Measured scan of single mutants.
Amino acid sequence: SDPSEDRAPESARVGNIPSSTSALKVPQLKVAESAQGPAAAHTTDTAGYNAMEESVSREKPELTASTERVNKRMSMVVSGLTPEEFMLVYKFARKHHITLTNLITEETTHVVMKTDAEFVCERTLKYFLGIAGGKWVVSYFWVTQSIKERKMLNEHDFEVRGDVVNGRNHQGPKRARESQDRKIFRGLEICCYGPFTNMPTDQLEWMVQLCGASVVKELSSFTLGTGVHPIVVVQPDAWTEDNGFHAIGQMCEAPVVTREWVLDSVALYQCQELDTYLIPQIPHSHY
């Protein structure tokens, strides 16, 4: 159930021909089969995070001529859309010479989310990475209204306002976009420790780096000194050995919190207090 199309920051360009055919990675995205229709094609874990990302398996898109002007500035990904909605975005992107990729990268400028009429969405990996990267996180209605009015409308009017977990109007995407000089995790050293489900560890690490944190791979690698705040992030329900995560405190002095601390902080683009996310640790033995 991992969102495989989000696994690594590679891009698939639509609308320009790469210098070599080997560089072309066409979105071959799968549809989750469901008797209840597209709305039930998501699996949500206890964290309220949509693990099964969206989309559609299609034939290789038709490439435009390399001489045609390509908008190098805009690059989009989509999240939560049905196959039909994805194809509408594809046509919109081609019309406006926008790069459409299946994986979010540093070059991505827009994340197009499936939302309700009030621009509230589910939480997906692309949603988190879009906010963390200060990108435009907009409703699919931006595409449909632009098509209806036959011009590209202003993104401000379609920015995602909230999500089904953290609140319907928290304005996290807007706050992140306007606060890239004040990253929420700066001054923190974060170790993403142990197993994680539904989200590859490297993507979680990239997320906290985008928010200004330094990533530490091992508990023994924390910088011990003033001005640096170490934090260990774990996902308790992913551990097979009972309560192993309670013993992390015996290996390092850092506070240990659940992954929800990261996800909530990123969604709201406000660093949350650790208290409600802390995992009790077995104290050091004193002999």
Rank of each mutant, 00 (worst) to 15 (best):
A65L: 12
A254P: 05
V56F: 08
M152T: 00
G15E: 06
D163S: 01
P283M: 10
G15V: 08
I98A: 11
M74G: 06
T197V: 15
I98N: 10
M76S: 03
V164D: 05
H246P: 12
K25S: 06
T43G: 09
T99A: 10
Y49V: 10
A93C: 11
G133P: 01
G15C: 08
M113T: 11
V257G: 01
S55P: 07
L278G: 13
Q272L: 09
E53I: 05
T21R: 12
R168S: 08
E68L: 11
V257T: 00
V262D: 01
S179I: 03
D157I: 15
Q272R: 13
K151N: 08
H170E: 01
V143T: 03
M199L: 08
A40K: 04
G194P: 05
L188G: 01
W136N: 15
Y287A: 12
Q28L: 13
I282T: 12
E253S: 13
V234E: 01
F222S: 11
A32Q: 08
C271Q: 15
S75P: 01
T64C: 15
E106L: 15
P280S: 11
K151R: 12
A8E: 10
V120C: 04
K72S: 06
D275G: 14
G227M: 06
I104R: 00
K217D: 15
P280Q: 13
T124M: 00
N198P: 08
W142T: 00
V111L: 03
C121K: 00
H97T: 07
E62G: 12
K72G: 07
E107I: 10
W206K: 02
T46Y: 06
N50S: 06
D163L: 00
Q180C: 04
R123L: 01
S285E: 13
V138Q: 00
P27H: 08
R175L: 09
V233E: 01
I279T: 05
W239P: 08
Q281V: 07
F141I: 02
N243L: 12
N16S: 08
C191F: 12
V256S: 14
A32S: 06
V14P: 07
G172C: 01
V111G: 00
N169A: 01
H97E: 09
C191N: 08
L153Y: 05
P200H: 11
L63V: 13
T258L: 07
E62V: 03
Q235L: 04
S265T: 04
A32L: 13
I147C: 11
L63K: 04
Y277R: 02
R186C: 07
V257P: 00
V266L: 05
T101L: 07
E107R: 07
H97A: 13
K135E: 01
V257Q: 02
R13G: 10
S4P: 02
R175K: 14
V216G: 14
Q28A: 02
M152S: 03
H170Q: 02
Q209L: 11
N71S: 14
T197C: 15
F128L: 01
K60S: 11
R175S: 11
R182P: 13
A8T: 07
S265C: 11
T226G: 07
N102K: 07
R7T: 07
I282S: 12
A23P: 14
T201R: 13
N16F: 01
T258A: 10
R73D: 13
